[in-house]
């Protein structure tokens, strides 16, 4: 992996002048993905914050081929691009040596929920596409509504905090696991660890098959924290093991934890700076923190078990 100093001499194929919020994690992730892509990137983008802010006619922040079609179908659109590459290559209309990195970059709403079927189809058919979900855990584009990726207890505009209900009632869907069940190369990554994220992107795009990377993407507006803290919050998410960094190889069988915190911090340290969890810290609501912590521990322990079992492979 190149050093940051070396990387900084490469052209960034996603420019400023986009209209994402100040402190948005999405462009940071996009930058890292495009810097890591080993071949000519082609980006498919479902409808999401990134899309409506980066390609606003007649401006486009992209310097690579870019296609937005609809909200729920980016994986299928990318499947079509992959099919076109195969077909045109077979016909000799594309140079055999010319390689492409077909990358979907979508939010969690378009990935966990409405785009779930298309994602599953793409992974099952084995298209050579990398699907990256920048996972900010809610429908930020439409104004912070809960999604399948929203954490337990979080406030959103469709999971309010009141007398009868304290934020989202369910724990979040573990999409990386589901993706792994398809036999794809799967990874969990976070934008604060650019080296880990970029390594995974490069690996995925060199993998002869489908891949899925879930990237933690703290959203200042939706999570309610100051916009300068985006990277810091992400770091806390990983340090408390809410968002562990791992990858799944060998068609879903080999689980590797890429980062084990030296001191696993309590989830409260991660939750505290986020306004969406403010009610966790009110008197009488301690059970929310406990339940959140318990679920994080359950998943982390299970992940460790899988990783341990994988070591025997």
């Amino acid at each position: 992996m190149a050093s940051l100093r070396e990387l900084s001499q490469k052209e960034v194929l996603f420019t400023g002048g986009h209209r994402l919020c100040a402190g948005c994690p999405a462009p940071i992730i996009v930058k890292q993905i495009l810097l890591a892509a080993p071949h000519a990137p082609i980006v498919v983008n479902p409808t999401c914050c990134l899309e409506i802010s980066s390609a606003v006619f007649p401006y486009t922040a992209w310097k690579v081929p870019y296609y937005h079609n609809a909200f729920e179908n980016a994986a299928a659109v990318a499947s079509g691009i992959d099919a076109a590459i195969n077909a045109l290559r077979r016909r000799g209309k594309l140079d055999e040596s010319k390689k492409f990195s077909v990358i979907v970059i979508g939010g969690d709403g378009g990935t966990y929920d409405i785009g779930f079927q298309a994602l599953s189809g793409m992974l099952e058919r084995g298209h050579r596409v990398l699907y990256v979900c920048y996972d900010n855990g809610a429908y930020m584009n439409t104004g912070i509504q809960r999604s399948g990726a929203t954490p337990y207890g979080a406030w959103t505009t469709t999971s309010h905090v009141g007398e009868a209900q304290k934020g989202k009632q369910q724990h979040r869907k573990d999409l990386a696991w589901i993706a792994a069940a398809h036999g794809a190369y799967v990874a969990n990554a976070s934008l604060h660890n650019w080296r880990d994220l970029m390594r995974k992107v490069e690996k995925a795009l060199n993998y002869d098959g489908p891949s899925f990377i879930n990237v933690q993407a703290p959203c200042p507006r939706g999570w309610r924290f100051p916009e300068s803290k985006t990277v810091e919050i992400a770091r806390l998410g990983t340090e408390c093991c809410f968002y562990p960094l791992y990858e799944v190889e060998d068609k879903g069988r080999k689980w590797i934890i890429n980062y084990v915190p030296k001191n696993k911090i309590p989830v409260a340290e991660y939750l505290k700076p986020q306004g969406r969890f403010a009610h966790f810290f009110q008197k009488g609501n301690e059970y929310l923190i406990e339940e959140f912590q318990a679920e994080v521990d359950r998943r982390w322990e299970h992940l460790q078990r899988l990783a341990k079992m994988s070591e025997e492979l």
């Binding site: 659109v77 499947s79 079509g80 076109a84 590459i85 077909a87 045109l88």
Partner: peptide, 10 residues
């Protein structure tokens, strides 16, 4: 959706 992708890819 896939048809859109492939057609857009020429």
């Amino acid at each position: 959706s896939a048809c859109c992708g492939s057609s857009a890819a020429g």
